[in-house]
Design a protein around this nucleic acid. Sequence first.
DNA 1: AAAGATAATCAACATTGTGTTCATAAATAG
DNA 2: CTATTTATGAACACAATGTTGATTATCTTT
Lengths: 202, 202
Amino acid sequence: MEKKAAKPREDQRVRLTKQMIQGAFLELLNQKSIQNITVKELCERAGVNRGTFYLHYHDVYDLLDQMQKALLAELNALLDGTPVLFINTPRETSGAFITALVQFFDNNRELCAVLLGENIDKKFLAAVIDAPRDKSVREYRALFPNASRQKIEIFYYFIAWGFIGLIQQNLRHPSAFSFKTLVSSAERIITEGVQFLAEPDG
Amino acid sequence: MEKKAAKPREDQRVRLTKQMIQGAFLELLNQKSIQNITVKELCERAGVNRGTFYLHYHDVYDLLDQMQKALLAELNALLDGTPVLFINTPRETSGAFITALVQFFDNNRELCAVLLGENIDKKFLAAVIDAPRDKSVREYRALFPNASRQKIEIFYYFIAWGFIGLIQQNLRHPSAFSFKTLVSSAERIITEGVQFLAEPDG
DNA sequence: AAAGATAATCAACATTGTGTTCATAAATAG
DNA sequence: CTATTTATGAACACAATGTTGATTATCTTT
């Protein structure tokens, strides 16, 4: 049996401190690469003592890690329950998961833009790509029992990278196209391939 | 008029030094993230004086940059001459560019695996994605005059990310599938979408 | 509201890597 | 062979790191 720890609710001081630090961190990440961000300047900007920083994080990369992990926990929660497939079968509308996924990126726009941006390593990207993999592959296997596992994985990775690529593009240039356009376009590309370019919009 | 500098051919000592440093760098990058690599340990492993390192590079990230730039110059050379399109039109075979591109990754396997791996930022990835963009978009516009620029760019990014995703997957797990399989699969996914999974192999 | 527990602050400290400099030795190109 | 270029080794000031201990401030619980 698991004991539901009934979260003691984090000390308000800790919450505020972390909030200040993470806020300053995001500001800095919008200005420069992570390797040029020092604990010292981060704390000065956050208005927090440097010693306090080390009370919560081992270093700047640990801070990044913790923020990533929190986000990924949120993302993984989306995987429970709903089927995951980008498309259920040709021409159907997008599932609940894909909607929730897009909303997830929209809700965490600033942080996701940084984590998927050029200044930071690919650990978050890799985690996002891999998160829905197993479940997705299973669903594809059910839909296409004759397709080999290799084939399905190739298809999965192609689609997943393509989709995240569009997400990244949107996060960097929000005005280029909307998330709504993104989802419907991805759906049509997945179901029809290049035909997408030949057909009329809508 | 440009004066073709007729490269004076780099001093042998310099060539050897850089080779040693870059070799040690790759070794280290296979072991740990770049942020944990210090100039000191890098030079010790390379058997090069630390002062010598600073004679050629400003810091570890400058070293990375120079290696990236050299690779990207090679890649951009592939863009001259040949048409670039992943597929010319449904069901045709892949063009010269895509073949050269795959060979490029194969020839520079170790370095590309690192540059597209998780430990490093996304600058190289972004550059690889964007390199063929303009040319590619132009060619798509010619093939599909009725498609909007937005539509074409969306298609381009989806395909480009998907393709590089498969490349990355292969670089990390070379045994999962061959480059040959990769190319033919990508072609079929692009032309047919999910149908790819329904059809028999080959 | 008081008491005990927890967190934040501040100053100090040893440590480590950085980036530069200089004199010297070694290798190279012409 | 000679002038030039490069690598070496040691020394240096500097900056950020990560930790410590004493003190103050703030929370939580009763």
